[in-house]
Design a binder for these strands. Sequence first.
DNA 1: CGTTCCTCCTGCTAGC
DNA 2: TGCTAGCAGGAGGAAC
Length: 306
Amino acid sequence: MVRVPELPEVEVVRRGLDDHVVGRAFVASRVTGARAARRHLPGPQHLADALTGRRVASAQRRGKYLWLTFDEATDGADDALVIHLGMSGQVLVEAADAPLEKHAHAVFDLSARGESEAGDAVDVVPQQMRFVDQRTFGGLFLDDVTVAHGREVPASISHIAPDPLEEAFDADAVARLMRTKHVAVKRLLLDQGVVSGIGNIYADEALWRAELHGRRPADAVTKKQLMATLAATQDVMREALAQGGTSFDALYVNVNGASGYFDRSLDAYGQQGRPCRRCGALIVREQFMNRSSHFCPVCQKPPRAK
DNA sequence: CGTTCCTCCTGCTAGC
DNA sequence: TGCTAGCAGGAGGAAC
């Protein structure tokens, strides 16, 4: 199964960038994917030119958005390179002479890392950071930084709510907001302006754990149930991080390459026809929002038909 | 204004 | 065997 990046996968990439890219400069840049750079309005060449020579200061994330900050702004305003992986995006750090991936849309030559205490050069092989994306739902662009929800973030993502694993996340406030809406709970879980970082897979998993059907209108669900659902999103994502978010080969910063454990641990998503781990009833799949939803028809009583 | 729907894209699989 | 249709889905923007 292809791994669609949600919060834990993106956090794994962020950690990889923290380890392998922060502190290094882009000594040369090539942005060849016009579609991947579509959100950079001045165009791909401008993006490449604007990034060349910049030294990366930090790798940050909110929800499914990643961004790199730089040591000093060129024109006074602080800016950031925003990266979204979409459905199939990858960020790779590898040797410059490694074969170019078919769907590589941007390539950055990295400055060598510093010397070790013994005085040896740490990197003898030149390296690159590459943005690769088969379906190009993702992309990258440069954006000014502003403050939103208590943090400095790229201006274009100021509408993205805090995610369940960040400090500013206020489950109580989110549950109260949800209860004001006559909208299906799952739709709200997937709304990045309500709570970010949750995609179809983790939404189904959290709803299964909370024993709540995602089609239930939020204003007809108790606050306690909503709090339980939000807590479940935290649990399921923390577990994914604990198991999938650890060790990496030094040169490989890659969501898809890090998986394998996930599919075994799913209780609802993709489990249609298999017995519910809690009660043994067969998991059901249904269409919802032009997507698939998976649930236990006994533990998660569906509301009356639409 | 809030909410819902449509669309972008490629690779894999099921079915004839 | 080879073709096509169907499916996967994040998120912006159009449509209602």
